[in-house]
């Protein structure tokens, strides 16, 4: 085994190690920026095209629900066609452990391209910005919803 071959093997192995790291980072990248770069990658559009029977899916529609305040800060839930329940109950989509939240506190559901916030008869109320939600109210992008100590927002 000549010196040169060994040197080449050594370099090849180090390159392989770094390729592995880069491949791993690539997987994470699609995980992090998946929704945004989705149209760029080849297989994502095919996946997305199928479950969108609605003809006009507007650009301004919210895609994520982000918890911006309270103990669950940083949690992100992707919005689908399914309604989102919020409360202390274990089967809620967003499970709060907050003494000021009811077990079934509020619900967010899509209707005609808008997300509607509905209070489910909670004890301490649901607030959209400053005003208490008494009947189903459409939620604009980026407006804080307060439930107990938790603040959530819809984002694109």
């Amino acid at each position: 085994m000549s010196e040169l071959t060994l040197l080449l093997i050594r370099l090849a192995f180090l390159a392989l190690l770094w390729f592995f790291v880069i491949a791993a980072v690539g997987v994470i990248r699609t995980d992090l920026f998946g929704p945004r770069t989705a149209p760029a990658s080849a297989r994502k559009p095919a996946k997305q095209a199928r479950p969108m029977p609605k003809p006009k899916q507007k650009k301004g529609e919210p895609r994520q629900l982000i918890v911006t305040g309270g103990p669950l800060q940083g949690t992100i839930i992707n919005l689908t066609e399914m309604p989102i329940t919020i409360g202390r109950a274990n089967d809620a989509t967003l499970v709060l452990s907050d003494d000021y939240a009811s077990s079934r506190h509020a619900r967010l559901f899509p209707q005609d391209g808008q997300w509607i916030l509905e209070d489910l008869g909670s004890t301490n109320g649901t607030y959209l910005e400053r005003s208490k939600v008494t009947r189903p109210t459409p939620v604009p992008l980026g407006v804080p919803i307060r439930i107990g100590k938790t603040v959530i927002e819809l984002r694109k």
């Binding site: 192995f13 392989l16 592995f20 997987v27 998946g34 929704p35 479950p51 992707n78 689908t80």
Partner: peptide
């Protein structure tokens, strides 16, 4: 449902696993 972020990515997992064993 269109939730790319929570895709299972089992293919990626198997591929990376094979890569790791190869290394």
């Amino acid at each position: 449902t269109p939730v790319p972020m929570t895709a299972k990515r089992r293919g990626a997992q198997l591929g990376m696993l094979a890569f790791a064993v190869l290394i």
